[in-house]
């Protein structure tokens, strides 16, 4: 089921939130499905609690490893203001999945700046295709808070239309065996939430 269309996925968050694992799972699935795939990450200084972004592109032929501003089909935001920060990369009719998680940046913690109120709702008001989810809650209910990013993979994979079996195969390859069952559950619950939101 090859399609000519290129899919551009931007995954944003805060250094340490696990965006890298998520982009790797999505990229691995795209490889399994026979697409040309490129992934761009930034290592080093930016990882020290800074704003981080992973870019995944797949289709029949990909040139640039980075997504053009205004060309992302979907933004998966692990954190609310990071989602807003990168929003200009989205296509006008693109989709946003926002994890309802707030991580205060230093200027907010030190009282020098204000964390904007209801930023996720402002995004939803501008973009009809916005899904707000609390992945931490999903993961906590299942019994392992660390599975939050895999729950987000569930939502993301449903949003871009990747079959669940393909993702489960990739998760099975990537996630350590003892954490596998929890992660698969988190993934399925994420898929579920997307369906409910849709």
């Amino acid at each position: 089921m090859m399609q000519d269309k290129i899919t551009n996925v931007l995954i944003v968050g805060v250094g340490g939130q696990g965006t890298l694992l998520t982009s790797r799972i999505i990229a691995q699935v795209a490889v399994q499905m026979g697409y040309d795939v490129k992934v761009s990450e930034i290592h080093g200084m930016a990882q020290r609690g800074g704003s981080v972004v992973s870019q995944v592109r797949y289709g029949t032929k990909i040139y640039s490893p980075i997504i053009k501003k205004g060309d992302a089909d979907i933004i998966l935001g692990f954190e609310k203001i990071e989602t807003a920060r990168w929003l200009d990369y989205l296509k006008p009719d693109g989709m946003v999945i926002i994890n309802n998680e707030r991580v205060n940046p230093l200027p907010v913690m030190s009282g020098k700046a204000k964390y904007p109120d209801n930023i996720h709702e402002k995004i939803a008001a501008i973009l009809p295709q916005t899904v707000i989810v609390n992945a931490t809650e999903i993961a906590t209910d299942i019994g392992n808070v660390k599975a939050a990013n895999v729950a987000l993979v569930g939502l993301l994979s449903a949003a871009v239309g990747i079959p669940a079996e393909e993702v489960e195969k990739a998760i099975t390859d990537i996630v350590p065996r003892k954490a596998l069952e929890v992660n698969l559950q988190a993934f399925r619950e994420g898929r579920n939430r997307y369906r409910m939101a849709g």
Partner: peptide, 15 residues
């Protein structure tokens, strides 16, 4: 763009 960036505080890397 969508004009939200003005109210977003910076997130510098930190110790």
């Amino acid at each position: 763009g969508f004009g939200l960036e003005k109210e977003i505080p910076a997130r510098p890397p930190l110790l």
